[in-house]
Design a protein around this nucleic acid. Structure first.
Length: 673
DNA sequence: GGTTGCTTCA
């Protein structure tokens, strides 16, 4: 079935195939020149001061200097350096390693490893690391670099595999390696796993450093409850005698912003300044982003002024964030003005600022204006990508413009080939709302091919659609998938599916859907238990019905309980009949609500007794029942008594006589009362 | 001899 197919696809298979670079430079690139950050240059100058073998730029201007340097070095050193260059440039890594591997030391191989990683040559990286492992030319640094690149190449499963297979326990708690693994998980959205692993690492002897905490803090940004998790981490790092630095404050501000903790962001910003860190553009834009969540444009404008007077110039992100503030505050005129300003500064070359505005307009129902921003963006030759399409498709869906949504989805499919789960959800939603079954199935196949894991929304969209199309079993299977993937379906959806499953007599599926909801953490409407009870009784799933009654008797009406009791005593497992009667009695639902001697309750006991008589080997159960009854104020009626007496030889005449006389006395007492 | 964290969108 398509569905299980979709849901079983593992995102970890998602290796970005590395195209062999056709235009691979003849001279090796200087790895650090790709980074414009101060840190990159720091690193390169530090490295240049040591005899370590790093990539040497080979442009003409530097050639003569390089020759001078070469004269000062020993022969083996030059041979190694040459070997590094050759391996890096060789189109045949295998043979190059075969030829030159013997000359290269572990640190030389690490240089090559990092070079491959920086150039995103994942296939070569993989091959080299493999070779290093096989030839036992590997160090802790090799692991930390390699795992780091597994993070950037979006392959956390591989990184974990490498980490777990490190043979030496001590190496496994090397803080650099641990930091790399944790970063890899965080970057790939696996914050919970990273925290779990972090605990394990500490247990095994890791002494975390500031970088460790900084890495984990960054993971708090996109998880629910991220703010309190961040606070826990800050507390822990302080407890370990570590201090927050400027970058950590930047991360913490970003966490505040994404968790709508506007005032906290402001107070950390001040605290940071008090501790002598001067805020940079990151700190300002994170705080600005925090103001956006409250639509606090006055404070935002003050902050931008403050930043300008401190000598910082607002960059693209800063201004875009300011646009977000205006949009969130529904100040669409100001938003438009700022968009013009961004455009003039050359900061509106990608879809982002347009997306912000479109999204804000669409969310307040101004779909026509959102559409015209979208068209304006296209007119300016800004290439729309998944974000803008998904905003527009979703808002058309929300606004009931299903045909237009469908057309836009098709347009995206025709024009773009970059898919992720969000755009897929938008497309699915459009096709579902337009009732295009073929296109829905095609999109699911596409997700499967592209190894895009369905998320909570995907499942919801599909289940709703399948219900609408009356494909209830398919809807049920999708819900099963959803549950297996750890998502909890919303109650209304579950409830409606259960209702329909009951209607088509898929009783056991209905119960299974009920159980998924029940054992999830979501709250469940009280009436739900009674609903499923009726379905289970109809399907003769009386044992399951018994469990439902036992656990939820207080939420179920007396009428439904009575119906259940009748069905169970008549058709349920004979060994459980007494238990069922006791549970119903104990729940406060007297076997007959108003009168223990009512005919309804007597019919129930009669039915139980006749079942026991039909199976004499269950005589102990009958005796237990008869002995239990008078204590609770129940007695058998005369016809049942006669029935028992007729079969008394099966149970022991003496005993039966004693029990029945006890019941008889009870009956007289009740009547006189 | 090696690690690292921060800002905008669905």
């Amino acid at each position: 079935m398509e569905l299980s197919h979709v849901s079983t696809c593992a995102r970890f298979h998602h290796i970005h195939p590395c195209p062999t670079p056709l235009s691979f430079p003849i001279f090796p690139r200087v790895s650090t020149t790709t980074s414009s950050s101060g840190r990159g240059s720091q690193r390169s100058s530090a490295a240049a001061g040591t005899p370590a073998l790093i990539d040497i730029p080979c442009n003409d201007a530097q050639k003569s200097g390089a020759v001078d340097a070469q004269r000062r070095h020993s022969k083996p050193y030059l041979a190694r350096k040459d070997a590094i260059l050759q391996v890096q440039q060789s189109p045949h890594l295998d043979s190059a390693l075969q030829r030159l591997g013997g000359v290269l030391k572990v640190q030389d191989l690490n240089v090559i490893l990092r070079n491959f990683g920086q150039q995103s040559r994942w296939q070569d990286l993989f091959q080299l690391f493999d070779w290093m492992q096989q030839h036992n030319k590997i160090s802790a640094s090799s692991y930390s670099s390699y795992i780091k690149f597994m993070g950037t190449s979006l392959n956390p499963a591989k990184a974990l595999e490498i980490y777990n297979n490190i043979p030496d326990e001590l190496t496994k708690t090397n803080v650099f390696i641990c930091n790399s693994v944790l970063r890899c998980l965080v970057r790939n959205g696996k914050f919970d796993s990273s925290m779990q692993l972090f605990r394990k690492m500490k247990h095994n002897g890791l002494i975390p450093d500031a970088i460790t905490y900084s890495t984990l803090l960054a993971g708090c940004m996109k998880v629910k409850d991220g703010y309190s998790k961040a606070l826990d981490l800050v507390q822990e790092l302080n407890h370990n005698g570590l201090q927050m630095d400027s970058v950590m404050y930047g991360t913490l501000l970003a966490v505040c912003a994404s968790n709508n903790q506007c005032e906290e962001a402001q107070s950390y910003f001040n605290q940071m300044k008090d501790e002598g860190h001067s805020p940079n553009i990151y700190h300002y834009s994170s705080l600005l982003n925090a103001y956006a969540s409250g639509g606090n444009y006055k404070k935002a404008e003050e902050l931008v002024q403050d930043m300008k007077s401190s000598g910082l110039v607002p960059n693209k992100v800063m201004l875009t964030t300011q646009l977000k503030v205006y949009v969130r505050g529904c100040l669409f005129e100001k938003s438009r003005d700022l968009l013009v300003e961004l455009d003039t500064l050359g900061f509106a070359k990608d879809e982002m600022p347009y997306c912000l505005l479109m999204d804000g307009l669409a969310k307040v129902g101004r779909i026509d204006e959102a559409r015209s921003v979208f068209d304006e963006m296209k007119g300016k030759c800004v290439k729309p990508g998944g974000y803008s399409y998904s905003i527009m498709i979703s808002s058309f869906c929300r606004g009931g413009l299903f045909e237009e949504a469908k057309e836009l989805a098709a347009e995206f499919e025709a024009k773009c080939d970059k898919y992720d789960v969000a755009i897929c959800n938008a497309i699915l939603c459009a096709y579902c709302r337009a009732g295009e079954m073929e296109s829905v199935m095609r999109t699911m196949r596409k997700m499967d091919e592209l190894a895009i894991s369905p998320d909570y929304n995907t499942f919801h969209i599909l289940i709703k659609f399948f219900c609408k199309e009356k494909l209830y079993m398919l809807a049920y299977q999708t819900m099963e998938d959803m549950h297996r993937k750890g998502h909890q379906p919303a109650e209304e959806l579950c409830s409606s599916l259960i209702y329909h499953l009951g209607k088509i007599k898929a009783h056991s599926e209905a119960f299974s859907a009920y159980s998924m909801l029940k054992y999830s953490k979501r709250t469940m409407c009280k009436a739900f238990h009674e609903k499923i009870l009726h379905i289970l009784i109809a399907g003769k799933f009386l044992k399951d019905a018994y469990v439902v009654v036992k656990d939820n008797a207080k939420f179920i009406s007396p009428a439904a309980i009575k119906k259940f009791a009748k069905s169970f005593v008549k058709l349920g497992n004979i060994n459980l009949i007494n238990d069922v009667l006791k549970v119903i009695h104990a729940s406060g639902n007297k076997i007959d609500q108003h009168n223990q001697l009512s005919s309804a309750s007597q019919r129930l006991f009669q039915m139980a007794v006749s079942r026991y008589i039909a199976q004499p080997e269950k005589k102990d159960l009958l005796l237990q029942l008869l002995q239990w009854m008078p204590g609770q104020g129940y007695v058998v009626d005369s016809s049942t008594r006669n029935l028992i007496l007729q079969n008394a030889h099966l149970f022991g005449r003496q005993l039966i006589a004693e029990i029945l006389s006890k019941q008889h006395m009870m009956s007289k007492a009740l009547k006189s009362h």
